[in-house]
């Protein structure tokens, strides 16, 4: 009997493996032999992150309307810190012989090597979301166009808006993203610049790695140590939610202002209720689309690629009330 269940288990496992494999295969869009449509691979960070999920959704919608122009393969890594996983994904896409790769790099330096390989194979590479490190690109003599928002300018918008609510000399704290990521660094710079320009004081600036629970722990500690704190500026919305919970628990709700970045639905709600002061929308749903359009342009014209900037907008209670149609 025991042996029977054991065998049964193994059979079930094998069946599961086959089913999974078949499932993966089925996801690929069938390509007609001799078809001229360019194959474009979109490589995201974590598809678990709402921001990237929206981005992928935008790309899918765009593809649904323009299916005759290109084929789309969307990929993501399980978590944002899995740099090696993303390198492997790029390698797989090279092996599949795609015509263009649109990538939101998990790390601004570590991905350059494999993207260099892709470029050498004649694949058009377009960088979105998190900008590749300029110095590393120059060292390798590589030009990869960046299509995306200016994270520093976006963060500055949030800090400047906060400054209108506070006074010079007020103490604020910053919650940073993953320290090694370029967009985290840019947002931190933008927040710092805005805070300093208004004469406010940065009590502490710490990384919470984009994560809600981590931000909650760090913010709790900060609130306890810096009793005169007036605001917490967060480099993304997940961290703003974590900080919001920490502020509520400390009994200082309403006394500490919070700013976010990304404009996820949950935070937009809190901006409406006034619990979070503002967030920044960089139109995530369109970012990948901008990248795809750009790649199609390059493929068609074989022109010299240049960076292209996409819009960033401040989201406040006022902006939400004046434009109820959005979100």
């Amino acid at each position: 009997m025991y042996k029977f269940t054991q065998v049964l288990g193994r059979v079930a496992l094998c069946a599961l493996a086959v089913a999974l494999f078949a499932g993966c295969q089925a996801k690929e869009a069938p390509s007609a032999p001799g078809s001229e449509k360019p194959r474009i691979a979109l490589i995201m960070k974590s598809l678990a992150n709402e921001f990237f999920k929206t981005m992928a959704q935008g790309a899918d919608d765009f593809h649904a309307k323009n299916g005759d122009r290109f084929e789309l393969i969307v990929n993501g890594i399980p978590n944002e810190e899995d740099v090696a996983g993303q390198v492997a994904l790029v390698e797989q896409m090279i092996a599949r012989g795609v015509d263009a790769i649109i990538i939101a790099p998990a790390d601004s330096k570590a991905l350059v090597g494999v993207l260099d390989t892709a470029t050498k194979q004649g694949i058009v590479v377009v960088n979105i979301d998190n900008k590749l490190d300029a110095q590393v690109l120059t060292e390798r003599g590589l030009t990869i166009p960046f299509v995306g928002p200016d994270n520093k300018a976006g963060a500055r918008l949030a800090a400047d808006y906060l400054a209108t609510k506070l006074q010079s000399g007020d103490a604020v704290a910053i919650l940073e993203g993953i320290p090694s990521a370029f967009n985290a660094q840019q947002r931190k710079l933008g927040l710092e610049e805005g805070v300093q320009a208004a004469g406010m004081k940065i009590a502490t600036s710490q990384a919470a790695n984009w994560e809600m629970a981590k931000a909650n722990e760090v913010a709790s500690g900060i609130l306890n140590e810096h009793v005169d704190l007036k605001a917490i500026l967060c480099a993304n919305d997940s961290m703003a939610l974590g900080a919001h919970a920490a502020v509520r628990e400390s009994g200082k709700a309403g006394q500490i202002l919070i700013t976010g970045y990304d404009n996820i639905a949950a935070v937009a709600e809190l901006v409406k209720s006034g619990a979070i002061l503002c967030t920044v929308d960089q139109h995530g749903d369109q970012l990948a689309v901008y990248g795809i359009e750009f790649a199609l342009d390059i493929l068609a014209k074989k022109g010299a690629p240049e960076d292209r900037q996409t819009p960033v907008d401040l989201v406040t209670l006022d902006s939400l009330q004046s434009a109820p149609a959005q979100q």
Partner: peptide, 8 residues
Amino acid sequence: RLSAVDPN
């Protein structure tokens, strides 16, 4: 504690 549910 977080008054939110987060996929991560």
